[in-house]
Amino acid sequence: MRRICFQLQVKPDHVEAYRAAHAAVWPDMLVALRDTGWHNYSIFLRDDGLVIGYFETEDLDSNLAGMAQTEVNARWQTAMADHFVSSELPADQAFVYIPEVFNLEDQLANQ
């Protein structure tokens, strides 16, 4: 299973709205994420709007392509678009991926 970490930036005056939206994600969006292979998915949000996301996947390209084909993702991306600092792409296409440099379990397993 591959671990993925990404960052995005929410506008400072949209932090509370973004937090509220993620406190009650639409049920059909939750199902779509699960069904397209997003596992152990978490989003972290700093007060200044920095978003760090983490999930595990077998195939990132398939996850992204699967979500792109769902109607709920199109609605979600539209609903979230105004929260992010200017980007011409929907948020799920504008991820800035952060490379993993350490994992405790991996290193312990390799001893």
Score class of each variant (00 low, 15 high):
63 N>T: 07
65 A>I: 02
12 P>Y: 00
58 E>M: 11
49 G>A: 01
87 S>P: 00
73 N>V: 03
102 F>P: 13
104 L>K: 12
98 I>F: 05
91 A>L: 03
3 R>P: 00
54 Y>R: 11
6 F>E: 02
104 L>P: 06
43 I>V: 13
108 L>C: 14
63 N>C: 14
89 L>S: 09
65 A>M: 06
79 A>E: 15
16 E>V: 09
22 H>Q: 07
76 W>P: 08
36 T>P: 02
7 Q>K: 15
29 M>W: 09
83 H>W: 15
21 A>T: 10
7 Q>P: 08
47 D>G: 14
92 D>E: 13
79 A>P: 09
44 F>H: 15
10 V>D: 02
28 D>W: 01
5 C>G: 05
61 D>I: 01
8 L>N: 05
44 F>I: 06
90 P>I: 01
41 Y>K: 03
24 A>I: 03
68 A>C: 04
82 D>V: 01
101 V>E: 09
36 T>N: 14
26 W>H: 12
42 S>Q: 13
9 Q>F: 11
6 F>M: 10
61 D>S: 08
50 L>H: 08
34 R>N: 15
68 A>W: 11
82 D>T: 06
4 I>H: 00
8 L>F: 04
64 L>M: 12
83 H>G: 12
95 F>C: 09
56 E>I: 08
51 V>H: 06
88 E>Y: 00
40 N>P: 03
110 N>M: 15
22 H>I: 08
89 L>D: 09
86 S>V: 03
110 N>H: 13
35 D>L: 01
85 V>M: 07
34 R>Q: 13
84 F>A: 07
21 A>S: 13
76 W>T: 12
23 A>V: 01
51 V>M: 05
30 L>G: 11
93 Q>D: 07
88 E>A: 05
105 E>C: 09
111 Q>M: 09
49 G>I: 01
43 I>E: 11
51 V>P: 06
35 D>W: 00
31 V>W: 02
69 Q>E: 13
73 N>S: 14
88 E>P: 00
6 F>A: 11
59 D>R: 03
74 A>P: 05
37 G>W: 00
13 D>R: 04
82 D>Q: 10
111 Q>P: 00
18 Y>R: 08
63 N>D: 11
58 E>S: 10
71 E>Q: 10
103 N>W: 11
86 S>D: 11
33 L>V: 02
86 S>A: 10
56 E>P: 08
23 A>F: 07
68 A>E: 14
60 L>H: 05
78 T>F: 04
74 A>D: 07
111 Q>V: 08
109 A>S: 13
105 E>S: 12
28 D>H: 04
96 V>R: 14
15 V>E: 01
92 D>K: 11
69 Q>A: 15
97 Y>N: 02
94 A>Q: 07
92 D>R: 12
25 V>G: 04
21 A>Q: 12
59 D>I: 01
73 N>G: 12
64 L>D: 01
59 D>E: 03
13 D>E: 15
110 N>A: 15
95 F>M: 11
39 H>K: 12
85 V>E: 12
43 I>D: 09
42 S>N: 08
97 Y>V: 02
53 G>C: 03
82 D>Y: 06
11 K>L: 13
63 N>G: 04
104 L>H: 14
40 N>L: 13
33 L>P: 00
43 I>S: 11
69 Q>I: 01
36 T>M: 02
23 A>Y: 05
111 Q>I: 10
41 Y>I: 05
43 I>Y: 05
36 T>C: 09
28 D>L: 01
56 E>F: 02
108 L>I: 14
